[in-house]
């Protein structure tokens, strides 16, 4: 209860400038303020202090990379399984699919092995992924989600572009082991086809002898960047895959 003749207490002045007085109290206070010069000055002074304080306190903005890590943490926590190693044999489900894929894989392997053992392994991985009904470990089309997921899991880093060529969508990623070394697997949809992109550190990857091969309808396309080998395996349109490769390569160049 506030009497007309009572001056405003400090708490009342403070709550008034914060807009925190209940309407009944605020009405009584305003009536008093209309007739009391001293209290009116107090309110003005408190308002000045409030706005000066707002200016003096500065807000600390998180650095962009910190914000990215926060965003990654926001996603529901997935159980931290040890990295899965895809092999055609362990992941193919269904006897018929197994036979078909194994035959296909062996057929392609025989051709590919002549140029690169790694290519055969990559193709196995891609085929395994196609035949598997277990999705990639991180499922997202957002590069701010996919890229940070690899942080700390790989002995190297890579960048993802803001946008991919039209018709190409990032589906997710996973950590795999190639030739005993950790590699990033990125899964894309290119048109109606799936594409696997493998990123490995250059020192581990060996020198690919070809930039592109087409084998039994699968394209295997390689690219070198300063630090990485990038390999795309897909049965999609080779020119669409080339666009994806150049978008990825462009993002790796040092700035």
């Amino acid at each position: 209860m506030i009497q007309d003749h009572q001056h405003l207490s400090y708490e009342e002045v403070s709550a008034l400038v914060d807009g925190e007085l209940i309407p009944r109290d605020a009405h009584d206070l305003e009536q008093h303020l209309a007739s009391c010069h001293s209290c009116a000055l107090s309110v003005i002074s408190a308002m000045q202090l409030k706005s000066a304080t707002k200016r003096a306190f500065k807000r600390f903005a998180p650095p962009p990379e910190v914000l990215t890590r926060f965003r990654a943490r926001l996603l529901p926590e997935t159980p931290k399984n040890p990295a899965r190693v895809y092999t055609a044999r362990s992941l193919i489900r269904g006897a018929l699919a197994a036979c078909l894929l194994l035959a296909l894989s062996l057929l392609i392997r025989r051709e590919v092995r002549q140029s690169s053992g790694l290519a055969a392994e990559l193709l196995d991985q891609h085929l395994a992924l196609l035949s598997s009904d277990s999705p990639p470990e991180v499922i997202s089309s957002d590069r701010h989600t996919v890229k940070p997921w690899f942080d700390g899991k790989l002995p190297f880093s890579f960048n993802l572009p803001d946008a991919f060529p039209s018709g190409t969508t990032l589906k997710g990623g996973d950590l795999i082991f190639l030739d005993g070394h950790p590699a990033a697997l990125l899964v894309f949809t290119v048109g109606r086809h799936q594409a696997s992109v493998f990123l490995t550190q250059r020192s581990f990857a060996g020198t690919p002898s070809v930039a592109r091969r087409t084998l039994s309808g699968f394209t295997i396309q390689y690219a070198k960047t300063q630090d990485l080998y990038l390999t795309v395996v897909s049965d999609g349109n080779p020119s669409d895959l080339a666009l994806l490769v150049s978008a990825l390569v462009a993002e790796q160049s040092p700035r």
Partner: peptide
């Protein structure tokens, strides 16, 4: 919680460093 004293009104709040 005493009422503010008149001196309070004389404060200069444009001194950012002091605040």
């Amino acid at each position: 919680d005493p009422s503010p004293t008149p001196e309070d009104h004389l404060l200069r709040l444009d001194n950012h460093a002091a605040l």
